[in-house]
């Protein structure tokens, strides 16, 4: 594949993506929260952990545009710093899942045979266990630190990716360019990582985009159960959980984090679907 070809393919992809209005909207939401999490201090000058018991549960005002929480902390600041934590959980968890899924899928698809059979049966078995049950069970025996949460969501979420990559690998390894590379004396590792891997990335990217959304939701569910990111570290999940107990009295404590999660997850999903459609104009469903 010539570099120029890849280049124009990429622009084709962007053009197609830009035509999909929902994907663009999703992308905008994703971008907004990404910026929020990158430079939270721009959005709020308050310290997200500054407690002021004289300012508990104040409605939105000029000083606190999104109001204050049950300890008088600025909700906007907590939302902004919470964005960082929530997105971090999403990205790291999905990063872990994607790496495992890629390795297993590439290996399984490329070598086939017994290793493939064993790995794929293992995937089948893992898929039988409800993922959320697995996550809870693991966290029960470890501590719910942010790192454990990211790792656990990651190691219980790689199976889908591995199946996807395996299927791609199976078809890719029969293609001419692989045969050509082999003829030039390329080793297995080179073929796998230089020739096959790049061609599996599109579907993996789609899966990863959807995965980030899933991980953010999972964190909020864990927070609801009291085993998510632990306060005082803000995450959207634990801000929303604290907000639910004030749902009627202090609406701003639940509405903002609720909407943030909703919009972000929605945004990642629309973007992911858009990428899928743009990558594969045949609109293959999966």
């Amino acid at each position: 594949m010539a570099a120029g070809g890849a280049h124009s393919m990429f622009f084709d992809f962007l053009r197609r993506l830009a035509r999909n209005r929902l994907a663009v909207a999703g992308g905008a939401v994703v971008l907004f929260f990404f910026i929020l999490s990158a430079v939270p201090q721009v959005f709020s000058g308050h310290d997200p952990n500054r407690i002021d018991v004289l300012k508990v549960l104040q409605a939105p005002s000029a000083g606190h545009p999104l109001g204050t929480d049950e300890l008088g902390r600025d909700v906007l600041a907590r939302m902004a710093y919470g964005a960082r934590i929530s997105l971090k959980v999403g990205f790291v968890a999905v990063g872990i899942a994607t790496c495992i899924g890629l390795l297993v899928g590439l290996f399984s698809g490329f070598y086939g045979g017994l290793a493939d059979a064993v790995l794929m049966r293992f995937v089948d078995i893992m898929l039988c266990f409800p993922t959320f049950f697995l996550i809870l069970a693991v966290i029960a025996f470890l501590e719910p630190s942010i790192y454990i949460i990211m790792i656990v969501i990651g190691v219980t979420g790689w199976m889908g990716v591995s199946r996807l990559v395996r299927a791609e690998t199976l078809s890719l390894k029969e293609r001419d360019f692989v045969a050509a590379a082999r003829a030039q004396g390329a080793g297995d590792a080179r073929i796998i990582f230089r020739h096959i891997l790049p061609n599996t990335l599109a579907p993996v990217l789609v899966a990863a985009t959807l995965g980030v959304a899933g991980a953010i939701l999972t964190e909020s569910a864990l927070s609801f159960l009291g085993i998510g990111v632990q306060p005082p570290t803000p995450s959207w999940g634990n801000i929303l959980t604290a907000g639910k107990d004030n749902i009627e009295f202090a609406w701003w404590l639940s509405v903002y984090p609720g909407l943030a999660i909703l919009l972000t997850v929605l945004g990642y999903n629309l973007l992911g679907e858009g990428i899928r459609d743009a990558v594969d104009p045949r609109l293959r469903g999966r």
């Binding site: 952990n49 500054r50 407690i51 018991v53 049950e70 300890l71 306060p231 005082p232």
Partner: peptide, 10 residues
């Protein structure tokens, strides 16, 4: 208790 801890921390 978690609120108590947060306030004492400060």
């Amino acid at each position: 208790r978690s609120k108590t801890a947060a306030i004492i921390q400060q």
